[in-house]
Amino acid sequence: MAALLLLALAVLFVGCSAFGGDQNTFAPEGDVAKKQLEVFYWALWPAVVVLILVTGALLYAVIRFRRRSDDDPIPKQVHGNFRLEIAWTIAPTIVLLALAVPMIAAIIDLGGDPDADALHVNVTAQQFSWLFEYPSLTDAEGTPLRAKVDELLIPVDREIVVHLESVDVNHSFWVPKLFGKLDAIPGRTNDLKFNATSPGTFSGQCAEFCGIGHANMKFTIIALEEPEFQVWCEEQLALEPGAPVCQR
């Protein structure tokens, strides 16, 4: 029964990419989230197979070997089988090692150095809002561009590097369709890179419990086509069109 249930769930997982809302991790819109979903499936399918096998064996054993009457003979007192036990020690070891190799490769891949032309963003988390600043996009006086509170604009298809800090308690920066979480922790800066592969508005919210306003600590990332982003940048900084700071 549990196996059927899980099979149903697995089907649902696939189905979920079709529906689900703005924070659906099954519908990634960035390379990081796509990679993370890929790794999820690497783990999901073996898990579903193991679940069906194990639960099937369990149910089979319980039904097949149930006591039919009180006069049933005492079963053979089997104490173990060394070969069998070694076998089912080694088998999961192989499966898990097979998972470990691509997992570590994916970790290293996601943690690699950012692109040279990446756009850097300083993100400051505070109870209960997000502040965004672009250190490289500066106006004539050298003041960096600040986005609206809780609204980050980025150019599409360009790598974004986030430098994440917190001024009070722990928070976690998360836009399910673009990237998994990274915590903002007072006293340290954490770095994250991601991109958006299509333009659009992506909603995110704080994923580390941070107090009374935690549920409402939401924000959006708006991905614009590169030219639109440059226009926005120039307007915000009151610069001439084509100003070099706003160019890629």
Partner: peptide, 19 residues
């Protein structure tokens, strides 16, 4: 146990952590 193994997969857990 199996969902635990899924969580141990770090990149995937970035999405699942605290959900």
């Amino acid at each position: 146990g199996l969902t635990g193994v899924m969580h141990s997969m770090v990149p995937s857990d970035y999405q699942q952590q605290d959900t």
